[in-house]
Each structure stands twice: as C-alpha cells, then as structure tokens.
Amino acid sequence: MTDDFDAARSGDPVHETPEVLHAGTIMIPALGLDASLQEVGPSRSLFQDAWRRFRRNKLAMFGLFLVILLILVAIFGPLFVQSPTKYSKTVFREPPTRQHPFGVDHRGADVLSRVVYGIRLSIFIGFMATAIETFIGVVVGAIAGWYGRWIDSVAMRFVDIMLGIPYIILAYAFITVLGRGVTAVVFTLALTAWLQTARTVRAGFIQVKEFEYVEAARALGVSNFRIMARHILPNVFQPVVVLMAVGVGSAILSEAALSFLGVGIQPPEPSLGLMVNDARSFLSSAPYLLLFPGLAIVLTVLGFLLVGDGLRDALDVKDN
C-alpha cells in the first residue's frame, strides 16, 4: 500500500522530502485547542516561565520593589542617619522638621533613625527566623513524609498539638524559656513557624513518593537520601518558596506584635513594634510617633506578602 503514495505523486509535490509522509504518527494531542496554541513560541524552562508571569503581575512587582527598597534602606540607611539611641537633652516630642524628618520621640531620639534601624532589625529577624524555621520544617517534614508510619504519626501528632495551642500563648511560652532580646525572638519565631512548613513538605513528600519514577529509582537501589534530594525536593520547591516569602512577612509582623506586648525586643533597642507601644500614650499630642513606625511595618510586611503571593501565582503550574 505504501508504494502507492510514492507512485501517486506525479506533479510537483508542495513539500520537499517524501519521508515526511511515513515518519511520525497521527497525533491526537491531548488538549485540542491548547495543543495548537502550544506551537506558538519557543519552549521555556520553568524558571523563565515563572519569572515572566511574575513580571506581569503588577502587585507582585510592586512588592518586589518595596522589598528591594527596604533592604537597601536596611543596609545603607544607617550611613545616613544618626544613632537611634542618641538622646537629645533639649528636644522632646517634636513634630517633623527639616532636621528631624520624622520628628523626635519622647526620649529625645530621632524617629527617622529609629525607624531605619527598626526596619533593619525587622528584616534581619525576619530572614534569620525564616531560614531556621524552613530548615527545621523541611527536615521534619521530609522525614515524616518519607518514612511514614509511626514516625509520621508521632511527628504529626506533635505538630497538631503545637498548632492547637494559640499562637500567642505558645510564643509566650517560648519567651519564658528563652528570655527576651533579639536571639530569643528569632528562635521563638522560628520554633512556632516551622510547623506549617513541616506540614507542607510532608504533604509534598507523600504525594511524590508514589510517583513511578521514584519507585523506579528505589528499585534501582538509589539511596534514600539521594532520592529525596534529587527527585522529590524539586517538587516540593514551589510551596516552600512561597511559604518562605510569606514567612518573612509574617515573622516581621509577629516580632512587631511581641515587641508591642513587651515580650520581644527590649528598649532601648529600636523595634518598630516597641515604637508603636511607646506611641500609645501620645496619640493625640504626637500622632507621628505612631504613624511612621506603623507605616514602616505595613510597607515591610506588605512587600513580602505581595512577593509571596506573586511567587505563588507565578509558580502555579495548574493554570496551564
């Protein structure tokens, strides 16, 4: 039968090579319309795709802008402002002036410098706490998800118990043990935040564990650790990255809350939350004492939350 095709072409064929006819099979693409759409444009790697989508999300880009801006402030800001603990002997509670763009607080310190150092401290604490909690969460989640059975049950029961305790109380509990100050705050935040990460990582592991290529790897005798690292972790990557970005934001928020309640950063260290607490008594007379630190907190948290959201949308493969 196939010879007839060759014989049939008497005139000039429109296409060049006759082999085209015999190569390939009837493609019945799975997705109809979408299949033809996919022929438009070159193939892209996951990262490029994600970055492209991220770029198009205006809110996410705004968040990124905020984050970069604030990080710059945190790094370079101290070069431009005076020390946050330099107390003037003469000037107290002054509204914003040229010399003190954010005003002066009730102790005589320049509010602008305190805000700058506060941002610096917040970002530092946010990053540190998130790094630690991600590490703990990934390790615990991976072990629980991979080995399963009783290890999983015990670990998850523990996580559930800790999650059942209202966050503030848990934080208080840790503070009681760890004391106050920056290190204590960092660890308190980390020790409460890893729970969510562990859960997510565990879920990811459980899902992926069943995949065939993992079974194949196991059958081939690849060590557990390697399988975890090379096959599974990349899959869990996406939700963890999102959690990290959002985590920094919520860590900053929590630090502010704890300092506000008096159990976080202690005076005279410049914490934005502390500043809000201090501003309490001067609401009517010096509202700027509340506004500037408050705004700083909002912008910082907002930036990270937006980036986290943007990452979530950008890395979400589902919508393809």
């Binding site: 015999h22 099979t25 033809s36 759409l37 022929e39």
Partner: peptide, 27 residues
Amino acid sequence: PIGGQPPSMLNPPAGCAFHPRCAIARS
C-alpha cells in the same frame, strides 16, 4: 498513520489546511 501534525489554529496554512500533510497536494 498520517504523517505530520495538525496545524496551529492561530496561523493556519494558506489554501487547503491539509496540504502540508497531503500526499497528493500540489501547487
């Protein structure tokens, strides 16, 4: 099997859409 792939509907071939895969197509 019929060789080739169905065309992109964003930019279908000119003339008869089947011609790139057709054994007897000619200008």
